[in-house]
Amino acid sequence: MESSVRSMTGYGRGEHIAEDRKFTIELKSVNHRYNDINIKLPRSLISLEDKIKKHIMKQVFRGKTDVYIGFETFAVDDVDVKLNEVLAQAYVGKLKILQEKMGLEGGSFFDLTAKFPDVLTVEKPQKDEKVIWEALLPALDEAVTRFVAMRQMEGGALKSDVLAKAERIIILVDKVKERSPLVVEEYRDKLNNRLKDLLDGVDIDPQRIATEVAIFADRGCVDEEITRLKSHLVQLADILEKGGQVGRKLDFLVQEMNRESNTIASKANDIQIVQATIELKSEIEKIREQIQNLE
């Protein structure tokens, strides 16, 4: 199967009729940290639950998936109506006593007795598991195929959105990178002008100014953070391109991106860098929210 990015939300339905037996299967899922598959099926099919789950897990790897299996049979051999004669006789006996004591009129108790619990019960005899499985499998495969297709379609939309936000982050990071050297130069000029005003014509030691500027530049240097952030963005695009189970990888990567952006923000000493960093963190948070939906 083609490796692609998938959403954890999806829906799929399948039906199949074989030998007067009809199977209807529905799958729907929402986000979840793990692969949690819950199956609701008739008691007559309970022996197939583990087999059904393993079959689904071959194509579904993460999310909370609810599976609903309906089974209708029109085959005479699949239905057995049981009559509990002892219970029916007990009911009739008690009804006759009630009729005599209360002076009630009436004839047959047939209709009333048949409505009492457990007098008539419908049982579905256990059939060959292999025969039932072969009849159920086409409906299951159809439901899973549609389910996965929907998750892939939504995953593709999420991938495009995340990559668009990553492009915006690259623009903001480049803005910070271009602005950082200018901040140091502006600080140098401000420091020179301030000292000239304070010292009123007295010569200023260039070495002392250079030292102060170097300390300022070192405190506000974000070159390493920018390099790592750009590296994370390259990895993000690469992971999305390869596809598969990307959710957990991207979750870790976005945590690292957040760490770098927080460090840049803590070192920011310029209003333009601060503004760019705020936008940067906002875009990273949007990506984090989106990847929570990815398998």
Rank of each mutant, 00 (worst) to 15 (best):
A139C: 03
K115R: 15
T145N: 13
I264A: 05
D251K: 01
N262A: 15
N269A: 14
A18C: 12
F116R: 09
V30L: 05
Y68N: 11
V119W: 07
V122I: 14
N262V: 09
E295T: 00
K165H: 15
N192R: 11
T9F: 00
R43D: 12
D200Y: 15
A90W: 06
L158G: 07
I264N: 01
L120E: 11
E260W: 04
K230S: 12
T121P: 06
R179G: 05
G220Q: 11
G70F: 01
Q290V: 06
D270R: 08
L41K: 00
W133C: 02
V67E: 01
H232W: 06
H16S: 02
Q126E: 13
E129P: 12
E100K: 15
F74P: 00
H16N: 09
K53V: 06
L112C: 04
N35L: 08
G106C: 09
G106M: 09
R288V: 05
V202K: 14
G63H: 00
K94R: 14
D80S: 11
A75V: 05
T65N: 07
I287G: 03
G93Y: 07
Y91K: 08
D80L: 14
D218R: 14
F252H: 02
V222M: 10
L236F: 10
K159A: 15
L199V: 10
I215Y: 11
L140E: 04
F110Y: 13
L140C: 08
R179T: 04
L27H: 05
